Lab assay of single mutants.
Amino acid sequence: GTVHVGDKTYHFPTPDAAKKFAQEIAKKLNLQVTVKNGTWQVH
């Protein structure tokens, strides 16, 4: 899975790992999470 946070991109071996990371970052930074075609965006 891929997660975009601002101008950074993180790659994870599984979709679940990407989802978990995106949700944790969003919670920590009080941001929104959207997913499109398996790519997570934190914004």
Rank of each mutant, 00 (worst) to 15 (best):
A22H: 00
H43N: 10
Y10H: 03
A22K: 00
V35R: 08
F12P: 00
T39L: 08
D16V: 08
K8H: 10
V3F: 01
A17T: 06
K36C: 12
H11W: 13
L31D: 01
Q41F: 15
A18H: 00
K28E: 09
G1S: 11
H4F: 12
E24L: 13
Q23E: 14
Q23V: 12
K36D: 11
K27Y: 09
G6F: 15
G38I: 03
T34H: 06
K19E: 14
T34D: 05
P15G: 09
T9S: 08
H4M: 15
D7K: 14
G6W: 12
K19D: 06
N30T: 04
K36A: 11
L31Q: 06
Q23G: 06
D16F: 09
A18I: 03
T9L: 10
V35S: 09
V5I: 13
T2C: 10
D16Q: 13
T39S: 13
E24T: 12
T34K: 05
V33E: 02
H43F: 14
V35P: 04
K20S: 10
Q32F: 09
Y10Q: 01
L29P: 02
T9K: 07
A17I: 07
F12N: 00
Q23P: 00
E24P: 00
G6Q: 06
D16T: 09
V42I: 08
T34I: 08
F12R: 00
F21K: 01
K28I: 11
G1I: 07
V35Q: 13
T14F: 05
I25F: 06
T14E: 05
L29S: 05
T9A: 08
T2E: 07
K20I: 11
A17Y: 05
K19P: 00
N37C: 07
T34F: 09
V5M: 08
A22Y: 01
Y10E: 00
Y10W: 07
T2L: 09
H11M: 08
H4I: 15
F12T: 00
V35G: 15
Y10G: 00
K36H: 14
Q32S: 12
H43W: 12
N37A: 05
G38K: 05
G6L: 14
N37M: 05
V3Y: 01
Y10M: 03
A22R: 01
V5T: 03
V3K: 00
T34L: 06
N30V: 04
A22I: 03
K19V: 05
E24A: 14
P13L: 08
T2R: 10
L31H: 05
D7N: 14
P15H: 13
F12W: 03
A17F: 05
A26W: 03
V5L: 10
I25V: 10
D7I: 10
P15K: 13
A18W: 03
F12H: 01
T39Y: 10
T39D: 11
F21I: 02
L29I: 03
A22W: 02
V33N: 02
A17D: 09
V33G: 01
T34E: 07
V35M: 14
V3N: 00
E24Q: 12
V5E: 01
W40M: 04
V5F: 14
I25R: 03
T34P: 01
I25E: 04
T9H: 06
F12Q: 00
K20L: 11
V5K: 01
K36V: 15
K28F: 09
H4L: 15
A26G: 07
A22V: 04
A22P: 00
L29V: 03
F21H: 01
H4C: 13
I25Y: 07
G38T: 06
Q23T: 13
T34V: 08
W40D: 02
K20P: 00
H11G: 04
V33H: 03
G38L: 05
A26V: 03
Q41R: 12
T14G: 05
V33S: 04
Q41E: 15
P15C: 11
V33L: 11
T14A: 04
K19Y: 12
N30K: 07
G38P: 02
F12A: 01
V3I: 02
L31M: 15
Y10C: 06
P13F: 07
V42Y: 02
T2Y: 09
A26I: 03
A22F: 01
W40C: 04
G38F: 08
I25W: 07
Y10N: 00
V33T: 05
G6S: 05
K19W: 11
A18G: 02
Q23K: 08
I25A: 05
V5R: 02
V42H: 02
W40T: 03
Q41M: 14
N37Q: 06
A18E: 00
P15D: 12
V3P: 01
H43G: 15
K28M: 11
K27R: 13
T14D: 09
T14C: 07
K8L: 09
N30Q: 08
V35F: 15
W40V: 05
L31N: 03
H43D: 09
V3L: 03
D16E: 14
K19M: 14
G6D: 05
T14N: 10
K20N: 10
Q32C: 12
D16W: 09
G1N: 13
P13M: 09
T2K: 10
K27M: 11
Q41L: 15
D7M: 13
T14M: 04
V3A: 04
T39W: 06
T39M: 13
K28V: 09
A18R: 00
T34N: 05
V42L: 07
K27T: 10
A18M: 02
K36S: 13
A18Q: 00
E24D: 12
A17R: 07
T34W: 07
H43Y: 14
N30M: 07
Q32W: 08
V42A: 03
A26N: 02
E24S: 12
F12E: 00
H4S: 08
A26E: 02
K8W: 10
A26Q: 03
H4T: 12
D16P: 04
N30D: 07
D7R: 15
A17N: 04
K27C: 10
V42N: 02
I25L: 13
L29Y: 15
L29W: 14
N30R: 06
L29E: 04
P13I: 07
L29K: 04
L31Y: 07
A22G: 02
